[in-house]
Structures are given as structure tokens and as C-alpha cells.
Amino acid sequence: MSAATDPVLTVLIVEDEQAIRRFVRAALEAEGHRTHEADTVRRGLQEAGTRKPDLVILDLGLPDGDGLDFIRDLRAWSAIPVLVLSARTEEYDKVEALDAGADDYLIKPFGVTELLARVRAVCRRHAREPGGATVVNFGAARVDLENRQVSRDGQPVHVTPIEFRLLAALISQPGKVLTHRQLLRDVWGPAYIERGHYLRIYMGHLRQKLEDDPARPRHFLTETGVGYRFCLSQTD
């Protein structure tokens, strides 16, 4: 997908560092997007209410509060996609941010190309009709969500009901990071949230069955310490 076909977005940047705000804005405006800026949680929420942005880029460390508060507050009345900016020491904050409803994250320092790719991916995912495609093709694999059929190179692949649920949870939101908690809750149920080993074992099964090289997966990607991300193709 080229930049030319992407829609023009209204982006709200909530970040207290002027230098970062400036280059993020420059990068987005160079792509033709409109930007608004806020430097505190309070201002950010006000702007989000009045400007009705298509995307919020949110720094987790803000002077008047936690980025998490912003997400929880925002999610109470809006489903606007949120892209979180986080430093590496805040890796557990960013998991919480994702659990609270953020859509994706970028680790500082990040590059412009990376930022723009994430912005495109988040917005494309958001614009997609929910429950649209029932047949998903990736690599040599083909998954028919409606008929619950999985095949690889045209040969049917046996998957257990739990493997299928995990597969469906991942491929229904391509490109999005799903945290361990979210996956354990959605696939196994709320009682299993602390049992990370279930997830490791079943992810291993899926990779064995559907990846060309399970040790170097191209589709079922690990976000260490955070969760998993399903990629349709390398460019997604």
C-alpha cells in the first residue's frame, strides 16, 4: 500500500517534550496528515474531545499524570486508536497500557520510518470492517475462520479447539500486539491469566504447524515481555 492511497488523518500528539513533538509533527505533516498537540494529560483529553482525532500518539510519562490514566479515561467514551511511546525501562507500563486499551507501542528512541509504518498499520486496522475476512492466507497457510479449516500447501492441518481459538484470536487482529493477559483471557478464560506457560506451549504448536521455520517465525511474532503479534506479511 503506498502513502498516496492512505487517507488524510487528524492526529493528536500528547507528549511533554517539545523536541519530540516537533519531529513527530514534521514527519506526519510531510505525509499530509493534520496534527494537534498537547503536553499534559488534561490538555490531551480536552483536545481529544474537541478535535475528534483519528489517532492519538501518547507519551507514557507526562508531567501531570500517567499515560495509563489518559487511556482509561479516553476508552470510557471513545475507541480512537492510541499509539503509545515508551522508554525501555517502562516496559511493564507499556504492557499495562496495551491491557488498558492502547493499540500499539513504539520504544524510544524510534525512527521516523518506524513511526509512519505503525501509524499506517494502526489506522488501516481500525478502518477495516470487523469480522470482514473469513478466509485468511499467510505464507503457505490458509485459515478458514467460518468453516474452522486450516491448511498448509493445500494439505489440511489438524488443530485442536484451543489451538484454533488462539489462531483465530491472533489472525482476527493482524499487526496488533496482543498481550499475554489478553490472549490468556480470551482463549482460556479469566482464571488462566497467570498461567503464561499455556500460551508458550500452544504458540509453539501453532508455529510448528504453520511456520516454515518455527525458530525464525515470519507470522507469529514474539514481542518479548509483552505478547504476540500476528503479521500477514513482512511489510504489515
Binding site: 523536541a19 519530540i20 516537533r22 519531529f23 514527519a27 522508554a87 524510544k108 525512527g111 513511526l115
Partner: peptide, 18 residues
């Protein structure tokens, strides 16, 4: 500390790339 060190580097990297 991490925030203070990373912020200027993020800006530096971003602006160079721009």
C-alpha cells in the same frame, strides 16, 4: 534518568531521519 537520556536521543534520531 532513562527518560532524560532518551528524550534528547529520540529527538536527535527523529530529526536526523526527517
Amino acid at each position: 534518568f532513562s527518560h532524560d537520556l532518551r528524550t534528547p536521543m529520540t529527538a536527535l534520531l527523529g530529526m536526523t531521519e526527517t
